[in-house]
């Protein structure tokens, strides 16, 4: 079974582009267009990792991170934050909220894939290889 990645971004074109990349790299992809839906899908599907936008209508990425930290089952799920605001302050806040990695937009897709491989456990990586 392929490792599942949950994409959470309110910009459908970014979701679509990331989906192409991640599926090509051997991941199963699920997507949510806002934070609330993201949390719901995370609880439902227990993805291997989440790729999360920060600025979204409704729950922000920071709030999603914090909610995940409160959830015993999801606390250990790696979260890679992708944000169009890459200043130090935003980075720090994201890490404080529990992000595993932070990549600024415009992102380099190789970086996203490298980051995912780095944060995923050995077991998920082996499933990816096969």
């Amino acid at each position: 079974m392929k490792p599942c990645i949950l994409l959470v971004d309110d910009e459908p074109r970014i979701i679509a582009a990331l989906r192409i990349r991640l599926e090509e790299a051997g991941f199963e992809v699920r997507a949510a267009s806002n934070g609330e839906q993201g949390l719901e899908l995370a609880q439902q599907h227990r993805p291997a990792a989440m790729v999360l936008d920060l600025r979204m209508p409704g729950l922000t990425g920071f709030e999603v991170c914090e909610a995940l930290q409160q959830d015993e089952a999801l606390r250990r799920m790696p979260v890679i934050v992708l944000s169009a605001n890459g200043d130090e302050n935003t980075r720090r806040r994201a890490f404080d909220a529990g992000a595993s990695d932070f990549l600024p937009k415009p992102y380099n897709s190789l970086d996203v894939l490298a980051s995912l491989r780095a944060v995923l456990g050995v077991e998920a990586r082996s499933r990816l290889a096969s």
């Binding site: 074109r13 192409i20 990349r21 169009a84 605001n85 415009p106 992102y107 897709s109």
Partner: peptide
């Protein structure tokens, strides 16, 4: 910050689709 966000998002899309 808003301007940054508004510029970077379409830029990301242009860059990503062109490289895909």
């Amino acid at each position: 910050d808003d301007v940054a966000h508004d510029f970077r998002t379409p830029l990301t899309i242009v860059q990503e689709y062109a490289s895909i």
